[in-house]
Design a binder for these strands. Structure first.
Lengths: 353, 353
DNA sequence: ATCCTCCGTGTAATCGATTCCACGGAGCCC
DNA sequence: GGGCTCCGTGGAATCGATTACACGGAGGAT
């Protein structure tokens, strides 16, 4: 493969001049520039990014470590991150932590070894040594979706509190009074936050959230199934199950079906995180949608700001309630809304009465 | 950040010796090794992968360019690729081509600039210059899922013909006679191959595949909807719609619902590519499942073989039919099969009567 | 006792770019 | 016309590792 010296030789100039042409340095004569460009084209020369990175100490690569790539929410996040990064001239190396702190640490370590310019993480657990260390020793870092307390790192996330309040209002309006929730791991911020918001919203209607109505999940399908089965075994099972993420909602739906229950007639279901497939389930599932693509973009922009030495602030975008049929009342025009939900073309604020 | 010289100084040896210790070179005294290891631990030294790559001319990075990350099939593929690569000591940079040859080319170019050791591609279209060039000029390359004719590159893919024959047998057994298919883009191999197999299987039952029963899709939801609407507008609409991928099947389901049709009573639906969500749709969708995780693993192993100078052969794994309710007959024990379909723990051969 | 071999180690070249510095020449001002 | 300032250019250092080569010393064979 042709190197910069070959180009220099072919153009009859020095390697320094070739470099200047390629990096748009002003001090190059029109004549030399033309000859270099011609040589580059003829040899099909492409600069070696590895060598460049060594010299300039920047790789124009971002590391993204997420908890579960198979979760559609994170898939969409990863996609928008990659898109925005590409637009800004960065590549992305993705690591899947699979909700395991050990794996997360492992990924962070390799990413650091590769001298990525910045790190985008949705931390799996209270914290993992490598990552905290990276953040503290100055590697530009941004948290997405989840975060870790007491670490001075910008956080880009959605605030579901208003939407959860809307959801509870919706459920209460439909006559539901016994509301249960399947929580995420207590260690994750999203896990505990959603429970708190749910309890607070219930409080506004004078409702309690008894201990047995809080199921322990881990954001995976199986845990949703287990928690729901526990609810159904209760002497007084809930009217509604609210799953703190999409996969657990699917598990819950499974369990309800297995018990021969009809949703929403016998029991209602709602989920945090909206995904295209919720439109096609039986019945379509009412969910709280995060502005996922915007989150991904914003996270990348914040991270790049940090990399370029600018300051970056945390950002919280509102989530919004998308009413479908799984809680009872058929929404006025599901079909129309459906198509838009599948692929939001632009960010929108919450839209509800 | 500490460099190899700092370690050398701290251990009282030369940089060469440090390097030898780190690379398990035999010629190092036990004493020196111990001192180096101690210095490494104390300084928290991590070798700079960029510098190492420049010198050794290998990055231990793989490039993966896929057509659509949001498609669950490719998501799963990407995940298994990343897993296997990690196990073999490689990182993966993922590029999303979004079914656009231009974007695909763009990704291949950046990956090549970064001097990745090997390229894993599911080509979007007949071919894109950069990629063909890469393959020809010796960059280790492996095609997954799709491929390009006349290019000497190993292909790892699933063979759906047997499963499609099983599907047609299943449909015919249920009394369906007017079978339609929504094809993928003609330019992709998977697009045309599935139609051919379908037509051949119909032939075995003395059935025709008329032109108006072949819908043109592009592997996206919207095209499935459009094609299905065209079918339904026909004077003699089909009994069954077979979608050549999962997203188009979802679009088809949408269109059927919009026309007030009940699946499978009024019309049947089947899909190529099985995904966890097909269990939760209304009704659960009969599909042809590819051994996705195995494909990802095999592709990585083939690519690494190429990289290490060994030979790699193409590999074709069989897909298998998973019967659910969308074509008519209720399968004996859906619930039991459901849980296993969600996450196959080990590869299985086709299991059907 | 002498020579040869092997082992552990250090010196220096190398990978392919970027960039600091010096230098020659052209143009400008006085 | 002499001195100054720029401008375009090339030489050489540099980034942080790996590795070919040389070298001194220990130990074995004769």
């Amino acid at each position: 493969m042709a190197g910069i010296k070959d180009v220099a030789a072919a153009a009859g100039v020095s390697a320094a001049t070739v470099s200047r042409v390629l990096n748009a340095h002003p001090s190059v004569s029109e004549d030399a520039r033309a000859r270099v460009l011609a040589a580059v084209a003829e040899l099909g020369y492409r600069p070696n990014a590895v060598a460049r990175s060594l010299r300039t100490a920047q790789t124009r690569t971002l590391g993204l470590v997420i908890s579960d790539v198979m979760n559609p929410y994170f898939t969409e996040l990863a996609r928008s991150v990659e898109e925005e990064a590409r637009a800004l001239g960065y590549s992305v190396i993705i690591g899947n932590a699979d909700e395991s702190p050990r794996l997360q640490d492992d990924h962070v370590r390799t990413l650091l070894d590769r001298r990525i310019d910045g790190l985008l993480v949705s931390p799996t657990d209270g914290g993992s040594p490598q990552m905290l260390d990276a953040a503290r020793t100055g590697t530009p870092t941004v948290f997405v979706d989840r975060w870790i307390a007491d670490v001075d790192v910008p956080v880009v996330r959605a605030d579901g509190r208003a939407a959860i309040r809307d959801l509870v209002a919706h459920l209460h309006g439909l006559g539901h009074r016994r509301l249960a929730i399947i929580a995420g791991p207590a260690a994750t911020t999203t896990g505990s936050e959603r429970v708190d918001a749910f309890r607070a919203a219930l409080g506004e209607y004078g409702l309690e959230l008894p201990e047995e109505y809080v199921g322990q999940g881990d954001f995976q399908v199986a845990s949703g199934r287990r928690a729901t089965e526990a609810f159904l075994a209760l002497p007084e099972p809930p009217d509604v199950v609210f799953a703190a993420d999409n996969l657990m909602a699917l598990g819950a739906l499974d369990a309800m079906r297995a018990h021969g229950l009809v949703v929403p007639d016998d029991i209602a279901l709602a989920a945090f995180d909206d995904i295209p497939w919720f439109v096609h389930t039986d019945p379509p599932i009412t969910a709280i949608a995060q502005p996922t693509r915007e989150l991904g973009r914003a996270a990348v922009r914040a991270l790049v700001a940090l990399i370029e030495g600018r300051r970056a602030r945390s950002l919280t975008l509102p989530a919004r309630l998308v009413v479908r049929r799984s809680c009872g009342a058929p929404p006025p025009s599901e079909e129309a809304r459906t198509t838009r939900t599948t692929r939001p073309s632009r960010p929108r604020k919450r839209s509800n009465p």
